[in-house]
Design a protein around this nucleic acid. Structure first.
Lengths: 172, 172
DNA sequence: GTCTATAGTCCGATAGAC
DNA sequence: GTCTATCGGACTATAGAC
């Protein structure tokens, strides 16, 4: 993150990252499949948190609310890592390749959440649509949170975004 | 598409593509920024169709319905190119890098649709949420359409998916 | 750790279309 | 005379095979 921030992602070579860590280039690739992955390795624990949060919601909770609750919980964790999360976001926002990687991680997260819903007995396509709607809500709330100079409450932004989604889909 | 279908995306070199087209490697990169882009260059016209469709919807039409109408129209176009669209989808489904590129194209499409809504006077975050919801609906409808052996009607699937999204977000 | 293929960039030259 | 297309060679970094 230091190197990516200082000179940009594209202008940083794997050899430089490895050198700063006191390792060789080959060792870097043993731990990370590619140059981008090093920024996303930590995301796995967040996905596990989200899935177990959905799984442990009471049966009485509607699917969309189980998703929203999980996302709000994850939002609280991200908020604690405030500066780290924002610096990481700035690096990603500055490079298209990194945005591609982020999007596929979010798509994989949506799949995992849909699976968690199916285990609660939600049928398709409801499970997938609910999960995708949740990810859309999260994306927009997170964008707003990262862009704001004055830090608003992320879990709150997530809940507000869901209400807004309800309003716009209600439509006619 | 011939080469990517025959031996797979990763196993195809740019030199081979260029040779089959009777050109050199250098010329390929003049036209396409990278090896993936050649599969997505045609998508630009579809984005223009969608944006102009949203822009030309009557003022009385609700934002979400303007988006849904545009997506259904695009779905009709894709359905006409039936075999081509399915072959392309199979190539993309078989390779993660291509999925990444597809996701960022869809994200860029969502941005363009949100902009079209803002020009209709829709405020943020409603515009972005409506656009993202539309893309989610489209993604799931298209997946189902491409997976089905018996070809269902894609515009119909899109409208049904939107109804399903309405039902699941209504929630509590 | 060594070796290597290939993607992708940068320099430039050439030639036809309008 | 400018625009746009092709092509060539040298080069670096990523990433995979072993």
């Amino acid at each position: 993150m230091e190197l990516y921030s200082e000179r940009g992602f594209a202008q940083t070579t794997v050899a430089e990252i490895a050198a700063r860590a006191g390792l060789t280039e080959r060792t870097f690739f043993r731990h990370f499949a590619d140059k981008r992955e090093v920024l996303f390795a930590g995301a796995r624990s967040l996905q596990e948190l989200l899935v177990s949060s959905v799984a442990s919601a009471p049966d009485s909770v509607a699917p969309i609310d189980a998703i929203a609750g999980a996302l709000a919980a994850a939002g609280a964790v991200l908020q604690e890592r405030g500066e780290y999360a924002k610096q990481r976001q700035a690096i990603i926002a500055a490079n298209t390749e990194l945005q591609e990687r982020e999007l596929i991680k979010l798509a994989s997260l949506a799949s995992a959440l849909a699976e968690a819903l199916r285990e609660r007995g939600v049928k398709e396509p409801a499970a997938s649509l609910t999960a995708e709607a949740g990810i859309a809500v999260f994306k927009i709330a997170f964008e707003r949170w990262a862009a704001e100079t004055d830090k608003q409450d992320l879990p709150r932004l997530i809940r507000d975004s869901l209400e807004e989604l309800r309003a716009v889909t209600a439509g006619h």
